[in-house]
């Protein structure tokens, strides 16, 4: 298996190989094809458009399914920050710092561990790495109760800490370790030998040679974890009780429960939708900036099968 290949991160080339055949297809076929393509695109993008549009409508018109609101209600976005018992700004901030800190922590801890497995030859390595890989299969459900009890016994839960959301990231994560190890294995060993000659010790070699060269893999790890933390509902649901400590997904769920009709609320759907749009936008922005890392990282995931 050649290693560097797995994460080259050259700009993803446009899919151009089949163009010749494309030209030979009849016009009718091409027309049908275009219609299908546009139709599918609408199906995938429409919910976003619907949400943005609905978030700008007054309560009574949320469900009118108009693309352009009949009456504009821009104040929904101001109102959503003034819901009693729903400090949106705090929730956003909580999500931002927990996601960032957690992602940074898991990136560097995984890099260290991955380097240990990639560079060194030591007794027990293959066995340990096998164990590590097998932990990827373990569903969170199996460990969540004892993990909760650990945090509870430390006293974190009653003191309202958000530690359970990011501290585990300090110890690496199997998938990221796997991904980064692949990358480290692709770095020619000569680089390290040369660094050793220059008087580098193992740590500086890791820090000065391996980490800069593995930057693409580190970025993939960082954005994947950022996304995972931004998405996570279950962990906050288990650990966070105090309204001020919630992260955005749980905050959103709280708003849904208190304003949606099923929770006995008034059906202020315009606020719920505005909050939803606020939760969605940052991830779309991250994707816009880091798109090729996302795509390349995911392709790598597929190749490990």
């Amino acid at each position: 298996m050649s290693r560097l290949e797995t994460l080259q991160l050259t700009p993803v080339p446009p899919v151009a190989r089949r163009q010749r055949r494309w030209r030979s297809v009849s016009t009718l076929k091409a027309a049908v094809f275009s219609v299908v393509l546009v139709g599918l695109s609408i199906v995938f993008v429409y919910p976003f458009i619907w949400a943005v549009s609905a978030s700008l409508k007054p309560q009574a018109e949320v469900f009118d399914n108009r693309l352009i609101p009949k009456h504009w209600a821009l104040h929904n976005y101001a109102d959503v920050f003034h819901i009693p018992d729903a400090p949106m700004l705090t929730w956003i901030w909580n999500s931002v710092w927990i996601s960032t800190l957690g992602a940074l922590a898991v990136t560097f801890s995984s890099a260290m561990i991955a380097f240990g497995f990639a560079y060194f030859r030591f007794p027990g390595r293959n066995l340990l790495f096998g164990v590590l890989l097998s932990t990827m299969m373990l569903p969170q459900e199996v460990t969540m109760i004892p993990t909760y009890l650990i945090w509870k016994n430390i006293g974190v839960i009653n003191h309202g800490g958000q530690y359970p959301l990011w501290v585990p990231n300090l110890f690496g994560s199997a998938f990221y370790i796997f991904l980064q190890r692949q990358f480290f294995l692709g770095i020619p060993r000569d680089y390290f030998e040369a660094a050793r000659m220059d008087g580098d010790n193992y740590w500086t070699m890791f820090w000065r040679i391996a980490v800069p060269l593995a930057k693409p893999a580190l970025i993939v790890t960082f954005i994947f974890e950022l996304q995972a933390k931004w998405f996570d509902l279950m962990t906050p649901l288990i650990y966070l009780r105090d309204t001020a400590l919630l992260t955005l997904p749980l905050g959103l769920k709280t708003i849904l429960d208190s304003f949606g009709t099923s929770g006995g609320g008034q059906g202020d759907w315009q606020l719920i939708v505005a909050a939803t749009v606020i939760a969605v936008l940052p991830m779309l922005a991250i994707f816009a900036v880091f798109q090729r890392y996302f795509l390349e990282g995911i392709s790598t995931q597929g190749r490990k099968g």
Binding site: V45, W230, F231, L233, P249, L252, V280, M283, L284
Partner: peptide, 8 residues
């Protein structure tokens, strides 16, 4: 894009 949307 839908894959970048939080499950909630």
């Amino acid at each position: 894009l839908p894959s970048m949307t939080p499950p909630v």
